[in-house]
């Protein structure tokens, strides 16, 4: 069912908390927004309300990880990157087995504006050695990533989640495999082939663009990147050689500098792929208040804007 991925996260956490007594959850006065409150209600003794202290929360979660717990620390992505040195040293450099949950990704949060929008978090988290970076596109994928992060993944990981509702694509998409690009759909039967790669809220915009492009003679293969790090370089190269797209585009509700667009650009250029790449997302601009739909339009990564540019 279409849900905000933060909601799916909260539900997954409450579900997994029952079987995994090592899970502890920390929140800095945003549990109703991050949806960690769903865990808090079920397991109050394992929920730590830290107050408005993100820096301390990151350190405390790391210490709990060193003492055998599996901490999920939750806040808005923007506030976590704001305490970057704590993420960098206390958590990641220390090898802490922590799950850092950054909700309120991108322009999609709308009205609250720039200060609350995580627009640089993928870039900053991705640059840290050993850090895993994940971003689900919908409810089912959030559940799958949460299972993976609890049952299999070891080390520090960052999970980026939306405030707004995400349409469901998982049921029709290829099965979820952690670390692998995931085919969502192929739209159109035209002779001109495009490869669209979206992440998070970008998947829905890529799908919308692909739909619009069918009328213009395009076949668009839409792929979802839920694991931004480690990035599936091999999978991307396989897609490029099997689909032979005339153009590639990426869509993300995030800065194109260092985000998904950069991940793809790095792989394409390092492998000598001479296919034109267009990166849709925030183009080196700050976020702002407004309706998400209007903001996506204004910043050029709504389905309509993408289709217009790619056609």
């Amino acid at each position: 069912m279409a849900k905000a991925t933060r909601q799916s996260f909260g539900e997954a956490l409450a579900r997994l908390g029952a079987e995994h007594s090592e899970i502890v959850v920390l929140d800095a006065d945003l549990s109703k927004s991050t949806k960690s409150d769903l865990f808090a209600k079920k397991f109050p003794e394992r929920f730590f309300e830290m107050g408005i202290q993100e820096a301390h929360m990151i350190g405390a979660a790391s210490g709990m990880a060193f003492s055998g717990k599996l901490p999920f620390l939750c806040s808005f992505g923007a506030f976590l990157t704001g305490r970057y040195d704590q993420v960098r040293l206390s958590a990641v450099y220390s090898g802490a087995n922590v799950r850092i949950i950054g909700t309120h990704a991108g322009l999609g949060i709308g009205d609250d504006g720039h200060s609350q929008m995580g627009l640089e978090d993928v870039t900053l988290m991705r640059v840290l050695p050993t850090m895993g970076v994940f971003q689900p596109m919908d409810d089912a994928e959030t559940q799958a990533i949460m299972d993976y992060l609890v049952k299999q993944y070891k080390g520090p990981a960052y999970l980026r989640l939306t405030r707004q509702t995400m349409p469901d694509y998982s049921d029709k998409a290829a099965p979820f495999v952690a670390g692998k690009l995931r085919k969502v759909a192929t739209l159109g039967t035209g002779a001109k082939t495009l490869l669209a790669i979206g992440s998070g809220a970008g998947v829905a915009e890529a799908m919308g663009a692909a739909e619009r492009l069918t009328a213009k003679g395009y076949t668009t293969h839409v792929v979802n990147c839920h694991t931004l790090k480690p990035f599936d370089s091999k999978g991307l190269m396989e897609l490029v050689s099997s689909l032979k797209p005339s153009q590639i585009f990426t869509v993300e509700d995030h800065s194109v500098i260092g985000g998904l667009g950069s991940c793809v650009a790095e792989v394409l250029s390092e492998n000598g792929v001479g296919v034109k790449l267009t990166r849709f997302g925030c183009q080196d601009q700050f976020g702002e208040s407004g309706e998400p739909v209007e903001l996506f339009e204004k910043h050029g990564f709504s389905a309509a804007k993408i289709a217009e540019k790619m056609a």
Partner: peptide
């Protein structure tokens, strides 16, 4: 704990104390 950027180790110690208490 990996430290060296000042002010961080005490939070880590707090987390350890919280976990052990739990």
């Amino acid at each position: 704990a990996s430290t060296g950027s000042l002010g961080q180790g005490l939070s880590v110690a707090c987390g350890m104390a919280m976990a052990h208490k739990l």
